[in-house]
Amino acid sequence: MKCAVSDFDRTLYVNGAVSERNIEAVKQWQRKGNLFFIATGRNLASIKEQLGFFDLEPDGLILNNGAAIMDKEGKLLLCRIIEKKQLLKYSGFFMN
C-alpha cells in the first residue's frame, strides 16, 4: 500500500474544477489498494463543499495547513490548537 497526497487549490482543483482525468487517476490509484489524501489550507466546511461537486472520495484530509487530519469517515486523527497564551504573544505581529 502506498499513500499519495495532493494539494487542492491550483493543483488538483484548477480553474474551478477537478478534471475528469485527475478524478479517474485518483480512483485507479485507490482501486489498486492505495490511499489518497488531500492537503489544504482550507477548513473542513470549505473543502467538503468543493468536494461535493466532484465524484472524488479521498481517504483522508489534511486541513488548515496541517493543523487537523481527518480520515474518510470524518474522525479527527490529529488536531493542533494554538494556546491562547501563544496567540496573544504573537497577536501584535499579525495586527501590524
Rank of each mutant, 00 (worst) to 15 (best):
K2N: 08
S6C: 14
S6V: 13
F8P: 04
T11K: 12
Y13K: 11
Y13I: 07
N15S: 14
G16M: 13
A17G: 06
V18N: 09
E20M: 10
R21F: 15
R21N: 13
I23T: 06
E24Q: 15
E24F: 15
A25I: 04
V26M: 01
K27C: 03
Q28R: 11
Q30W: 03
G33C: 00
N34P: 01
A39G: 14
L44P: 03
A45I: 15
S46Q: 15
S46E: 11
K48A: 05
K48T: 10
K48R: 12
K48C: 07
E49L: 14
L51W: 12
G52M: 04
F53C: 07
F54G: 01
F54H: 08
L56R: 04
E57D: 11
D59A: 10
G60V: 02
I62Y: 03
L63E: 01
N64F: 05
N64T: 09
N65I: 13
I69P: 00
I69V: 05
M70C: 07
D71I: 06
K72S: 12
E73P: 00
K75Q: 01
L77R: 04
L77I: 03
L78W: 07
L78Q: 06
C79A: 08
I81P: 06
E83G: 11
E83Q: 09
Q86T: 11
L88F: 09
K89N: 06
Y90E: 13
G92E: 11
G92N: 11
G92W: 10
G92R: 13
F93A: 03
F93N: 03
F94H: 06
M95W: 04
M95T: 08
N96Q: 14
